[in-house]
Structures are given as C-alpha cells and as structure tokens.
Design a protein around this nucleic acid. Structure first.
Lengths: 354, 354
DNA sequence: CAAGGTTATGTTAGCGCTATCATTCGCGGG
DNA sequence: CCCGCGAATGATAGCGCTAACATAACCTTG
C-alpha cells in the first residue's frame, strides 16, 4: 500500500479540537483528512492536483469525501489561491436573443475549463454597467467579458486598474491595447443597403431603435451607402429610444402610412421590428416586397418563416461568445491570444421580403 | 469632531509590516484602515453596517476607499461571515424565453437586497442539474431556486443535506415540506382543451415536444378534458423529444397532412410550435381556424401578431420569478413565508386561430 | 457624582483553504 | 554503501475579512 500513515490507529485520539464540521454544518477538508488519516493538504491535492497524489490514496480520499458529503468551499479556495475561477460577463439585455446566444457560446467554452460566468445585465446603460462592474469586482473575477465599447470613464478606470484581462464582444476595437471579438455592424448596414439599391429601391428608409452603439453603426453603414448613391435623405430615418419589439415594428408601419412616407423599402435595425412590420403589412394588405420592401438584421429564428420570409443579415452571435471566451482563457493562462481583434464577419441572407 | 483618533500623527510609522496591498495588487481593508488611521473592523462596518459608524468618519472611510480603488473581497467576506450573498438558480433553457423572463423576475427581486444569482442551465436534464447543483454548492449559496420538481435521487440528497432553503419554480408541489411557486400546467392544458370543445372542435390533436414534466402535465390536462368528453384518441397525440421551435411546428403541419390526420384542431404544447404551424398553414393555404384550429401555450410576444393571431394560455413567468425570489428572501431571513405553495394562476387568451 | 446605559471603536481569533517550504522514503549510480 | 534525486506527503503560515467580545468615551438619572 502506498499510504504511509495508513497503519496508524484509525483515530489519533489526542487532538485538542475536533469540530467535526464547520460552522455551517458542512464537512471541511480537515474533516475528510482526519477520517482518511492524512493531512488536509493532501485532500486539497486530491481535488486540485490529482497527479500529485498516489492513485490509491486519491481514490480513498474521493470516496471518503463523497460519503461525507464534502463539497469544497469555493470562497476559501478563492481566498487562499487568489483565483476565483469566475468570469464576469456583462450583456445589455436578456430578452434580446442575440445576447442569450452569445452567453451560450461563452458557457460552452468556459465550463469545461472550470470557469463560471457571473452574468450581469446592463439594460443598455453604461451607468448600470459601471455599477455592475463595481459589484462584480468584489468577486475578484479572473477575467471580464463586456459587450460593446461604450463604457463610462469610471468604468474604464476600474478596468484599467485591474489586472484581470478584459475582452470586448460584438463591436471591434481599433485600439491595439484592447481585445475584441465581433463583427462590423457598419458593414452590416452597408451590405443590406447596397442589396436594396441593387434591387432597384431608391427611397430606402431606416428605423433605428434602442439607439445603442451597434444600432447607430448600422445606421452609419446605411447612410454611407446611400450617400455614395446620392440617395440619402434624413426624412427617411426614424430614431426611437424604445427597445426593439414586434409591437414597435408593427406600429412603425402604421406611422409610415400615417405620415404618408414615400419609402419603397424600409431597413429595420433589428429582426423583431421587421417581423412586426411584416405582420402589420399583411394585416393592412400592404404587399411586400412590391409595395414596400422590408429588411431586418440579426436573422432571428422566425425570420425564415414569416410571410414573406425576411431578408436579413446573420450575425455570428454564438461564435462571438465562444471566441471571446477562448481569448479570455488564453489571457488568463498568461498566453497572448493569436489575435487581439477578431472579426467573425457577417452573412447576408436574401429572402422574399426584398 | 467625532473622530477620536483623528489627531494622531497621520502615519503611525512604527507598524511592523505594511504590505500596502494584497498579493493581487489590490488594496485591502487593512490598507484603507491604515490610511484613515483606524482599525480594519471599522472599515468593514462602514461598508456593511454603516449605522454603526459616525457619519463623518464613515464618509472619510468611503472617500479614502474610493480614492485607493478599494473593492471588498467577496471571497474573504463569505468565508468569514458564512454568508455568500449568492443564490443558485437552475433553469432548463436559456433559449426558451419563458425562463429568461423568470430570471428577470428573480434578478429584480434579489439585486436590491444585495443577493447575486448564479445561473445554471440544465438543458432539461436532471443529470445535468445534479452536476450543476454539485458545482454550485461549492459557492455555499444562501438559497437555491430550481425549476420543476424532477430531480435525481442524488440531487435530492444534496439538497436535503443542505441547510440552505430551496424553492421550486413553475410547477406546484403537494409535499408540505417543499416550497413552490408556479401554476398548474395541467389546468392550462385542460382550459385550452375545454375552450376548443366549446368552440365545437371534436377531433383535437396535441403536439408534445421536449417531454419535460410541464409539457406532460399539459398533455394530462388535455387528455382528462377529452376523456371526460369521451373524445380522447391516442392517435391524435404526437410526442417528440426534440426541443420546441418554429421549425418543428411547421414540420408538424406537413406531417399531419402527410399522415392524413383527421384533426380539426391542434393544441401545441408551446407557442413557438404553434407559430410555426400558423406560418406553414399560411404557406400551404390551410385556412385557420376554419380548416384547422391552432392553439399554443405561454403567450410569447409574436403570438399576438401572427395571421391569424394565436389563441394561447399566458403563464405568469415574470411573477413566478419574483415571488419565488421573495419566498427565498423570507427563508434566508429566517422567516416563514406566507405560503409554502403559491399558485399564481393562468390567463386564457382567446384569439383568432380557434 | 456613582451606577448603569449607550455609542463608537478596537482586539482577538478564526473562517476553510492553498502556497511554500520542509520532510520522508525509495532508488540508482558511482 | 553513501549521495543525490524525484515522488509522495506534511507543517506552517497566511489569504482578507468578520463574529464576538472588549474597551473607551460620553450620557443619563436619581
């Protein structure tokens, strides 16, 4: 047998204190160690560095731990090792599927490596983001994933004062000191607008909601494309601070009608708006795309099924999450990631609505 | 002035060790205390029990902490106080909006009280749930929120061995020892089926997917209602393990047609299926509700906008999250919640599709 | 103005774990 | 057969914070 202390009397019997269990009633590492007849550090190793413990002893430790219902205390581990095995993830919204899919990518990358995500929702507000960053710094996260590049000054200070690596998702940063994974929203706006121009539409409207930086970048792409064609007209741009929804998209169709807009096509900054628009067109008997072409952005699941199906731009949301997490893992390992700025591109999807 | 030690020399100068900052390079409570010229515990109080510290001193502490970039270390706090201020939340899916809204309710309730949610996704698998429970127990959560009542034996053992309170969401438990907040899925299934019967449909089909306990409960409600009417027929029930999606709903319409089903109405266990079915009916020229009535469940946002609009049952998802979190807060405060089983009811929504 | 209470702050001793540096044992080479 | 070395395990000393119990100053009150 490998165990040296194995033939000691089963219970040393002379120990001064034997609380058996912690304050919380849960077994501790020391309890397991005592039961096995070894020291606590070996129990620690059996969990964290199994290759350092003789296989048979390790098995005995794990079995004993299991039978005692021992669960390592993450707080104590984090305190002693200065590694929280936690990554703070801040996204603007949870009701927007876009970010939920990104989260899934992050999870799938982090969990197998033993990291946990601490998820915060900023509601598109840099101020709320700052508050969340402050809160989450208490957890001494080993890494941080942020959405977008629009942060408060104080938030920037927090982050730069911090040793933990940070990766920005969705938008791409030009600053060579920052890390980012995403796609060019501006290019997305341009792609779609160019497509509409090619289809012969000349009075193309744009509906921007939420007015977050990504929406505005799409708007920029739209504007540039139209300016190049000499067709940009501010009166065909609607800017609304409301969150994106089917309802709002439907309402926009009503508004266009009410305002007697001359648009022959409308590019909505998000698919759910465009879907709402399609529903309302159907209801009001507006023929799409003949009377009015409708375009969206993000390729949400329903967009392939509406009548008519929706022309849109697919964004690599899941991949962005995965790659951002992978980049962070590299950084947390002290490695330099292959690229500090990763453009995952966009896929234009032409369907019936244009 | 309130500060007693305030007129000491600014730096005591004789202290034996002055690490200034922890291993991680971050300022610690002791650093702040030294700078202010007080003891660490007072800094602790300034943050956690501000009413115990003289207002002016408190302000000075907060200012100094801010200027030093001090952030409390949550791991140390959790270890010392045996309170993690963390609630583990397990949901089956993130892509299903139902649970995302529940999460929002949980967040809105917990955050203002200083608790953080640790979110885990079980993918509808009790085994994965068990794994997540094990993982999250390491964080010594002060409370646990679970979805449904379908847990593995080992998971039950973990939970019962635990002192932390647990609340089950979505389904209602009859066991008086357990706490639950939700609504009767069975009743939902019954409500809808009764409605369809009242509308005169006699050959009502049911499409069950995912086959999680909630879906099966709805199926039960459907079956009981039809059995009472003497109209239940197993051949009109489809059971598929796949996750719910628009695509699958559309495919089911194709399948019904291919199988020459005699259904005059189909009750889909989830709205996205029903939406897919509506889309496909429109595409294939099946008149809804004349040729075929379509019903859904959950009242997702798009259901009010499809053509025709979808008859469905609204579930109080957000409220379930809020109330479950509220119940947990009571329990964590050592209070007994007003009810151990909270039925938040359902809302039947009749629309055009039936 | 002493006894007792209240308020504001301090001292001490851990929480449960891991970094770090021993220590012990077995083994192969000179 | 001794030295050196690697493998397996242990002893010790914190990580940064807070519970629990002091202590000190002030405030009542009769």
């Amino acid at each position: 047998m490998t165990t040296r202390g194995g033939d000691r009397p089963a219970t040393p019997a002379v120990k001064t204190r034997k609380p058996r269990s912690s304050r919380t009633g849960r077994a501790t590492m020391a309890d397991v160690a005592e039961r096995v007849g070894i020291s606590a550090i070996t129990v620690s190793r059996a969990f964290k560095r199994p290759e350092l413990v003789a296989p048979e002893l390790r098995q005995r430790i794990l079995d004993t731990a299991q039978s005692m219902g021992y669960v390592p205390n993450q707080a104590a581990s984090a305190l002693a090792s200065a590694r929280s095995m936690t990554v703070a993830v801040l996204i603007p919204s949870m009701t927007n599927m876009v970010f939920v899919e990104t989260l899934a990518g992050i999870h799938d990358m982090l969990l197998p490596r033993g990291y946990r995500a601490l998820i915060g929702v900023t509601h598109y507000s840099p101020v709320e983001e700052e508050r969340l960053i402050r809160t989450y710094l208490q957890f001494q996260p080993d890494g941080i994933l942020l959405t977008g590049t629009d942060h408060t000054e104080i938030a920037r200070t927090y982050l730069s004062a911090l040793s933990s690596p940070t990766v920005h998702m969705m938008e791409l940063l030009d600053d060579p000191d920052s890390l980012s994974v995403g796609c060019s929203q501006e290019e997305g706006g341009r792609l779609m607008t160019t497509h509409l121009l090619e289809r012969g539409y000349r009075r193309i409207g744009f509906v921007a909601v939420q007015l977050d930086p990504r929406t505005l970048a799409r708007l920029d792409g739209y504007r540039h494309a139209l300016e190049e064609a000499g067709l940009y007209d501010e009166k065909r741009v609607w800017r609304l601070p409301d969150p994106s929804s089917i309802h709002l998209g439907a309402a926009m169709i009503d508004r266009l009608m009410a305002e007697n807009s001359d648009c022959d096509a409308v590019f909505f900054c998000n698919d759910d708006l465009a879907q709402g628009a399609l529903f309302q067109c159907q209801r009001r008997g507006i023929r799409v795309p003949d009377q009015l072409a409708v375009a969206g952005f993000n390729d949400l699941p329903a967009s392939a099924w509406t009548t008519p199906t929706l022309t849109t731009v697919a964004t690599p949301r899941y991949a962005i999450g995965r790659h951002a997490a992978a980049m962070l893992l590299d950084l947390m390992d002290g490695k330099e990631p292959p690229q500090r700025r990763l453009d995952l591109g966009l896929t234009f999807i032409a369907r019936e609505s244009t």
